[in-house]
Design a protein around this nucleic acid. Structure first.
Lengths: 185, 185
DNA sequence: GGACACATGTAAACGGTTACATGATTGT
DNA sequence: ACAATCATGTAACCGTTTACATGTGTCC
C-alpha cells in the first residue's frame, strides 16, 4: 500500500485539504496513482491518528470551512523509512488485453471500435500531459531555476508521456491486426 | 472485474485445473493479469455455480487427482457479452513514481539502487518475453499457419514487450536524473 | 530426511469502489 | 430554477492479499 505515502508526498509538496488532495489525484498525481475522496478522507483520519499529519481548521467566508493537513516530523520519518524499503514490481492488469485474446472466440472486428475509443482517450491524456509539461517545465513561463523537486516531478511526468506514446503505438498495432483478421472471418 | 473473463479466455484456449490456471497466470497471462491460486479457486467455484464452466474429475496415478474445467455454452455467451461492453481505461498505480517524487524530501541518491533493481527485473522480463516470442511466434519452430488466436496472442505479447522496452528507457532517464541530483545535495 | 512440484482448499484482514448524505456559494 | 464547484463524511459491498492447512510423489 502506498496511498498513505502518496498523500505524504503530496502534502509535503504543498499542504492542503482532503478535497484538494482528491483533485490533485485527478490531475498531476493521477498519472501514477488514483484515489477517490472517500478513500482519502478515511486514510487522512488514520494518518492523523498515527501522528503522521497535523490538521488546522481553516474558516472561510465565501466557501465551506476546510481542514488543512500538513506533514509532521513523524510523517516525514515514516516516508523516509518507506523510501529505503525495496518495493515489488508493479503487477499489470490490462482488461483490454484480456478482451483481445478473448476476441479469438468471438468476432475480432467487433473490438475495433472499443480499441479506437481507447486510442482516443490515450491521445487526450497525452495531449493533457504535454500541455502540463509545457506549462510547468519546458515552456517560456516555467521557472528556469534548477530544483531537485521539480526535476523529479518532471522525470515522473516524462514517464507518463512515454507510457501514453507506447500505448498509442501498440493500439495502432492492435488495430492493424484486428482489421487484418476481421474481413477474413 | 475481469478475472472471471480472463479465466474464461484461458480455459477456452485450453481446459485445465485451478492449479494449472494459477501457473498460467504466473507465465503467459501474467503480463496482462495476475491472480493467486486462492483467488482462482474461489472464482472457479462461483463460475461453476453460475454454469459458466463444467468440471471433470481427473484421477491421476502418480500425482494428486485434479479437476479439469472447461467452458460451457453459457460461459461463452457471458464472455461474448462482456466483449461487447465498453470498459474503463486502466488506472495506473506506480509505487516507484511515488518514491521518485518523495525522494525530493529525502536523499535522491538513496533511490539509485532501488531503481537499478527494478531495471534489472524489467530486463529479465523482457528477455523472457522475447524468448517466448521466438519460441511461439517468430522462431523457426513456430507454426507457419495463420490463425486468428495466435495472431491475437502475439499482438498482446508485443504489447508486453513494448511496455518493458518503454519502462527500461524511462528507468534510464530516471537514473540519469537521480545521478545528476545526487552529488549536488 | 528434506526440499520441491503437484493439487486443493479455508479464514481473516485489508483496501478500494459504489451508493448515499448534507449543505453553502457561484454562475447561467 | 438548475447545475457546478467547494467541502466533508458514512455504510455496504466486493475483490485482493496473506496466513494457515493438508496431503502425495519425486528427486537428491
Amino acid at each position: 500500500m502506498a496511498l498513505e505515502h502518496a498523500i505524504l508526498v503530496s502534502l509535503l509538496e504543498k499542504p492542503g485539504s482532503g478535497y484538494e488532495l482528491a483533485r490533485r489525484f485527478d490531475r498531476s498525481i493521477g498519472y501514477f496513482w488514483t484515489a477517490t475522496h472517500q478513500q482519502i478522507y478515511r486514510v487522512l483520519k488514520r494518518m492523523e491518528g498515527d501522528g503522521w499529519i497535523d490538521v488546522r481548521e481553516m474558516p472561510q467566508q465565501t466557501r465551506p470551512d476546510k481542514k488543512e493537513y500538513s506533514v509532521t516530523a513523524l510523517g516525514r520519518a515514516a516516508l523516509s523509512q518507506w523510501l529505503h524499503e525495496p518495493i515489488e514490481l508493479e503487477s499489470v492488469r490490462h482488461d483490454l488485453a484480456v478482451k483481445i485474446r478473448g476476441a479469438a472466440f468471438d468476432d475480432p472486428a467487433a473490438l475495433i471500435r472499443e480499441v479506437e475509443r481507447h486510442h482516443q482517450a490515450h491521445t487526450d491524456r497525452l495531449t493533457h500531459y504535454l500541455a502540463g509539461e509545457w506549462r510547468d517545465f519546458t515552456g517560456p513561463g516555467a521557472p528556469g531555476t534548477p530544483d531537485a523537486g521539480r526535476e523529479l516531478q518532471h522525470v515522473v511526468l516524462r514517464g507518463g508521456i512515454a507510457y501514453e506514446r507506447m500505448t498509442l503505438a501498440w493500439l495502432d498495432d492492435v488495430l492493424v491486426t484486428l482489421r487484418r483478421l476481421g474481413p477474413a472471418r
